[in-house]
């Protein structure tokens, strides 16, 4: 990706692995972090984004361009977001949610968070542990105690827990 600094409406973003990306300012300011830099006049040269790697940043920029091309129509934006996230695995989603948080992009943050929540929804504790690789570090007694404490949340829930 070649940086393009000629036109005033294009910004150059740098990922933490030194990849350069050019993006229209109008799309980039979806990130409040970037918008603040632009407003403070710090966006003249290259904007370094120390917490985002090149692969994730490329993805975020695709999203920025895609969503900003859609006029004020919440339904269309929502369906774009759904489509954009539909083929992302959890690894990528985790990178995206961290990037969205750092870049302060609430719409992307919410979309990714909702997508992750969707995976956890209506699933047993055991299933969620296996899916996300969460190690159960409770002793059986401790786990039983926590469950007892929140008994009301387990009523009617299938217990397929095997760990």
């Amino acid at each position: 990706m070649a940086a393009e600094t000629g036109t005033p409406t294009t910004l150059t973003l740098k990922s933490n692995d030194d990849e350069l990306f050019s993006v229209a300012e109008s799309a980039a300011i979806l990130s409040v972090t970037i918008r603040n830099m632009v407003e403070d006049g710090c966006a003249g040269g290259v904007i370094p984004l120390d917490n985002v790697d090149g692969k994730t940043l490329a993805s975020v920029i695709t999203y920025m361009n895609g969503i900003s091309a859609i006029p004020a129509d919440e339904e269309k934006k929502k369906s774009y977001r759904d489509k954009f996230l539909s083929d992302k695995d959890f690894e990528t989603l985790a990178d995206m949610v961290l990037a969205a948080n750092y870049l302060n992009m609430s719409c992307l943050m919410d979309a990714v968070s909702a997508k992750i929540a969707q995976v956890m929804e209506k699933k047993s504790v055991g299933w969620v542990r296996r899916k996300f690789g969460i190690e159960n570090d409770y002793t059986p007694e401790e786990e039983a105690a926590v469950k007892e404490e929140h008994k009301w949340t387990f009523e009617g829930v299938e217990t397929d827990d095997d760990n």
Binding site: V97, S113, A114, I116, A117, Q118, M120, E121, K122, V125, V128, R129, I134, E135, N136, D137, Y138, E143, V146, K147, E149, H150, W152, T153, F154, V157
Partner: peptide, 17 residues
């Protein structure tokens, strides 16, 4: 992420680890 879960589901995460 928990914002998008129901109260029950959010509370149940306490058993994960």
């Amino acid at each position: 992420i928990m914002y998008f879960l129901t109260q029950e589901e959010a509370v149940r995460t306490s058993v994960l680890s």
